[in-house]
């Protein structure tokens, strides 16, 4: 099984990177751009176990390590 994990800053938390990229896109003429937020995308291969177990384990990984819950949210998809 494979997990696709997205870690993003919580809404309301300042995203300096997103802000800088948004300004750069504006400067390059992409005037329609707004609300740029930068996050992390992870792909993880999982060995064995049921789908439920995998979900449980991935959630644990996110909360223990992959996301800093003080400032970040996470979501994930589990697929074949």
């Amino acid at each position: 099984m494979k997990a696709k994990i997205y870690v993003t800053l919580k809404s309301g938390v300042l995203d300096p990177q997103g802000k800088a990229v948004e300004q750069a896109l504006h400067a390059l003429g992409f005037k329609e751009v707004g609300g740029v937020r930068i996050g992390k995308y992870l792909e993880i291969a999982l060995d064995g176990g049921t789908r439920d177990e995998a979900e449980h384990r991935v959630r644990e990984m996110c909360e223990k390590l992959l996301a800093n819950l003080i400032i970040e949210d996470y979501r994930f998809e589990i697929g074949p």
Binding site: P16, Q17, A20, V21, A24, A27, L28, I38
Partner: peptide, 14 residues
């Protein structure tokens, strides 16, 4: 430059 926020130098080159 630009905080090195996206990749170092990536924004400054423009």
């Amino acid at each position: 430059s630009y905080g090195d926020y996206l990749r170092c130098g990536a924004i400054a080159r423009f």
